[in-house]
């Protein structure tokens, strides 16, 4: 097999490994649309990176992180219906990003690549970035696991029991922003959340503990990447969407299995 396939697989597995364990928290905290909004804002980060000529991984993270913090503050203020707000922000950020990219002169940007991912074009540098950032994110998530789980169950109870909720919350959002930056080139901003949410939902029926669910979600994510990549090569279909289709198929089959 050609080396680009192995590189694609390596990058895809790296993304799946970190996206799924973070995704279970998005599912438990009912933040799927929140993740989507952050992912869509990544395009704005890309445009900003190009305009200011800074590393776009950093720019994407910075923008995603800012959007996350703004959302957090708006949510804490209460009274604003969050789903409406997210609906507005997600598409406003996406469109603003598309418009901003058009303003960048002299640079031809492969928009489709950023919207749907271009996993077959990943370089060794991309893989190093995915695995490096992914390993860091996994380590932080492991450190955060207990308090994050406690505040997911009941935020105020966790606060009274001495957990530094705001700090944990901020680091969690930073991790989501990091994963979005990492996965942007691989699966694209429109599909990133599917690699976070669908494997988590697939793992649910087969898990009895939170840890089992995270682990199974990671395995499901990896299988989706492998199956999607294989299918894409076999039938010459776009790779990013093929991966999502594969993970949706895995989800559907998990519903047929008996619940635990």
């Amino acid at each position: 097999m050609d080396s680009f396939i192995w590189q694609a697989l390596a990058a895809g597995i790296g993304v799946a490994l970190i996206a799924a364990p973070l995704g279970v928290f998005l599912v438990w905290r009912r933040m799927a649309y929140f993740g989507d909004t952050l992912a869509h804002s990544a395009l704005l980060g890309l445009a900003l990176g190009l305009l200011l000529d800074i590393d776009f991984n950093l720019a994407v993270m910075a923008v995603a992180m800012s959007v996350a913090l703004v959302l957090l503050l708006l949510q804490r203020g209460g009274r604003l219906a969050l789903d409406t707000l997210l609906g507005i922000l997600a598409h406003a950020a996406l469109s603003l990003g598309l418009v901003a990219v058009a303003f960048v002169e002299g640079v031809r940007v492969d928009l489709m690549g950023y919207l749907f991912g271009d996993i077959l074009a990943v370089t060794l540098g991309d893989i190093a970035w995915v695995w490096g950032a992914g390993a860091l994110a996994l380590m932080l998530l492991a450190l955060l696991w207990r308090p994050l789980l406690a505040l997911t169950v009941h935020e105020e109870l966790a606060r009274v029991e001495g957990i530094r909720v705001d700090l944990i919350q901020a680091v969690f959002l930073l991790l989501v922003a990091l994963v979005i930056a990492v996965s942007m080139k691989i699966v694209g901003v429109l599909l990133i959340t599917s690699l976070m949410i669908i494997p988590a939902a697939t793992a649910r029926r087969l898990s009895r503990t939170p840890e089992q669910m995270a682990l199974l979600a990671a395995l499901t994510g990896i299988s989706s990447v492998a199956l999607g990549l294989a299918g894409s090569l076999q039938w010459d279909t776009p790779t990013g969407p093929s991966i999502v289709v594969a993970s949706a198929l895995l989800f559907t089959s998990s519903r047929v299995l008996p619940s635990r």
Partner: peptide
């Protein structure tokens, strides 16, 4: 206490969260 149905959490685990 509202725990999302997607979070597999036993009573034992809940009691030892923190």
């Amino acid at each position: 206490l509202m725990i999302d149905v997607n979070l597999p959490l036993s009573v034992r685990r809940f009691l030892t969260l923190t």
